[in-house]
């Protein structure tokens, strides 16, 4: 197990390098001179040169990249071009908001999705199954900004039960989490259903029945643990689209998180902040998938541990 984790960590190095190269080129591929952007359009030439020197923009590209990576490893992403504050100071508070939103939504979608998927599979072709799958299809096909707006319309404006915007209090959490988690719940439900149906037809389920176990024990002890294995992978992948979905959800509910930060700073061409945000999201995504891989191995004893 330990060896496996070490190997997966080593395998992360090229992935992270690739991500850093893409993020780094962001600045160099966009047209316009960064120094000009910082100094403003009418700045004198001397000021621009001064800024260029300060930022090392005249160094050869590989040197710039090396410095960028060196600083990034130390979590130093430089200063914002707009506010001149250190990027990390701008980033972290927003990161935690988004992270909370993503984690709550994941919990919501896994919980709801698993229950719905199991019910669907155990009662295949029943009224409940057809109903759940219809709702899941709806959950999958509906754009989440629209869904968010509809929820807000009903629960905040018409019924007045929940606050329409903001983040922090438990009431404020509910609508964004439903908005963001519904698609995940639908994916998990569908995956759980098909995985459970597949497992239920396996020979070892027949063996379990032949031992004289109760149907409930057969389903929950023998089928579910096996059925979860592919579901875990899907949850990991879901987390990535969840982070992307968070950008829209945050805009809809005016939540001051990473998504909003990224959009604002792209519009303002504040590249150090954008770079840092993208890099952090990529790293989180990569590590979540590492955790998924490890738990996959842990659940699935059939795969060799070496």
């Amino acid at each position: 197990m330990f060896q496996f984790i070490v190997r997966r960590l080593i395998q992360l190095i090229p992935v992270l390098l690739g991500v850093s190269i893409i993020v780094f080129s962001l600045m160099h591929l966009t047209p316009g001179n960064p120094a000009q952007i910082i100094a403003g359009e009418n700045a004198p030439k001397e000021t621009i040169e001064q800024i260029e020197n300060r930022l090392g923009l005249n160094d050869p590209i590989p040197v710039q990249y090396f410095n960028f990576v060196k600083d990034a490893v130390m979590l130093d992403f430089g200063s914002s071009w707009r506010t001149s504050l250190p990027v990390s100071e701008e980033l972290w508070p927003k990161f935690w908001v988004t992270f909370e939103l993503a984690v709550y939504s994941t919990i919501f979608s896994v919980f709801l999705g698993l229950i719905a998927g199991i019910i669907s599979a155990v009662r295949q072709y029943s009224f409940a199954d057809v109903g759940i799958m219809l709702v899941a299809l709806f959950g999958l096909s509906m754009p989440n900004f629209w869904f968010g707006l509809m929820l807000m319309q009903w629960f905040s404006i018409k019924l007045g039960w929940l606050p329409p915007t903001g983040w922090g209090s438990p009431e404020q959490v509910i609508l964004p989490v439903i908005t963001l988690g519904t698609m995940g719940a639908a994916v998990v439900a569908r995956m759980t259903r098909s995985s459970m149906l597949d497992v239920i037809s396996q020979d070892y389920i027949r063996t379990a029945r032949a031992k004289g176990l109760k149907e409930r024990v057969v389903i929950y002890r023998h089928a579910l643990k096996n059925a979860l294995i592919p579901v875990v992978t899907v949850i990991g992948l879901q987390f990535g689209s969840l982070l992307a979905g968070a950008v829209l959800t945050e805009s809809v509910f005016a939540i001051n998180g990473m998504g909003k930060l990224i959009i604002d700073r792209i519009l303002a061409r504040d590249f150090p902040v954008v770079q840092a945000a993208v890099l952090v999201i990529a790293v989180v995504f990569v590590f979540v998938n590492l955790i998924v891989d490890i738990s996959y191995k842990f659940l699935n004893k059939r795969i060799n541990m070496d």
Binding site: Q202, Y204, A210, G212, K301
Partner: peptide, 21 residues
């Protein structure tokens, strides 16, 4: 109560008849 107790059964596919987890 009879299954696995008074009457037991073994199957064709030993490779897949045991629960892998």
């Amino acid at each position: 109560n009879i299954r696995g107790n008074e009457i037991s059964m073994i199957f064709q596919e030993p490779m897949t008849s045991l629960n892998p987890v």
